[in-house]
Nucleic acid binder design. Structure first.
Lengths: 203, 203
DNA sequence: ACAATAGTGTCTTTAAGACATTATGCG
DNA sequence: CGCATAATGTCTTAAAGACACTATTGT
């Protein structure tokens, strides 16, 4: 038996940090407990499709709100599932924060409660892996930050994934030197006090 | 069905470059063709144990000659196996070059002939992944270079994995600054002409 | 004016690339 | 000696860290 477990993240402009989809299990084992959304891999099914199925089925989001999917690692501890030995192929996914209501709870990294199975360790591995993908993997970076983003959001994202907050000026310099990324001319007022920001836009 | 396919590498002092174990399949599908050593994952079996089983069974090496094992990636193309949809969990392994006779053919990266299944692409992914592990993953690096190695061998290894040969002086400088690695006092004559080398030893 | 936020500039440190120079062996 | 191989030193460039300074808004 092979399950595909998904670390689905979103980063809404209305939220200070990215968050992860956690669902309450409605079936045994661990019925009623919290876990990552996951499905059993169907025969001949692709990992990408299984991840989509986990998000649409367990989180309740239509597939067009999924902006990126990728592999993480395989967890093979034989006792990880009380039903018997099961492999977990873990995947990451980025979903559109402007998505309709869903059936998941969303937690910031680091505030996720205890999870069923070995999903706690899986989540930790995922966070470290995503920290490595940020800025290096254009697909992931663009998916989670969106088409236009402020340096402040880039700062918050990097801090949430890596655990330490980069220097604002240094991050700006890095973004400036990044191919395929440009700084908009027009400044945008954020609403509160402070200087307006110049959004970063992908080309 | 889940298969575990192993990219088993060794780097003998008698060889100029590292090489990969390739076996000739004795069963369908692709009987008689070349492929990576692989086994079907048993129920409740750990990936590490399956990789060991592939090496002992298909390559014919005793398990004590295996110096390191790790995960690579999952290949899920439904048509990759003519028997029907099969997942391939690919792994790397490093085997002791001072091993007894085995039943595999050993090819240098880049000189491997056409392989059955999707093992060609898997091997390419593996090579890139191992290039990333070199110097960063102490376990892999120590396993493939051995307890004592010359800068010349480090150069050859880096070139074989990454495709480009680093500068000798720069590599020496990097090794000098690497924690857990020391340069032996006594120089070793290599046999041929040229200045003796000071081996690098792990601490 | 002042606090809050954003952007820019600069000095320093570190890592890496390129390449010359010196050292030690074999024939 | 001449050639092959190894080690070291140096100049330069690129990237990153730390931090000061300026700019623009809301109250």
């Amino acid at each position: 038996m092979v399950s595909v477990d998904v670390v689905a993240v979103r980063f809404a402009v209305t939220e200070a940090t990215p968050s992860v989809a956690i669902i309450r299990r409605d079936r045994e084992p661990f019925a009623g407990e919290l876990a990552l959304p996951g499905v059993l891999l169907g025969r001949g099914e692709r990992l990408y499709d299984a991840a989509l199925r986990a998000i649409t089925g367990k989180v309740g989001l239509p597939p067009e709100h999924i902006r990126g999917v990728g592999q993480l690692a395989t967890f093979d501890e034989p006792l990880r599932d009380p039903r018997g030995p099961t492999l977990s192929l873990s995947m990451w996914a980025v979903v559109d924060p402007a998505a309709p209501v869903d059936t998941a709870s969303w937690f910031a990294f680091g505030q996720v409660p205890h999870l069923a199975f070995d999903h706690g360790p899986i989540l930790e591995v995922a966070r470290a892996a995503l920290a490595g993908l940020l800025w290096r993997d254009r697909t992931f970076t663009r998916a989670i930050l969106g088409e236009e983003f402020s340096t402040a959001r880039a700062l918050a994202l990097a801090e949430a994934l890596s655990g330490s907050r980069p220097d604002r000026g240094n991050l700006n310099r890095m973004l400036r030197s990044m191919p395929g990324l440009q700084q908009a001319e027009a400044a945008v007022r954020s609403g509160g006090p402070g200087r307006p920001y110049q959004p970063w836009v992908w080309t």
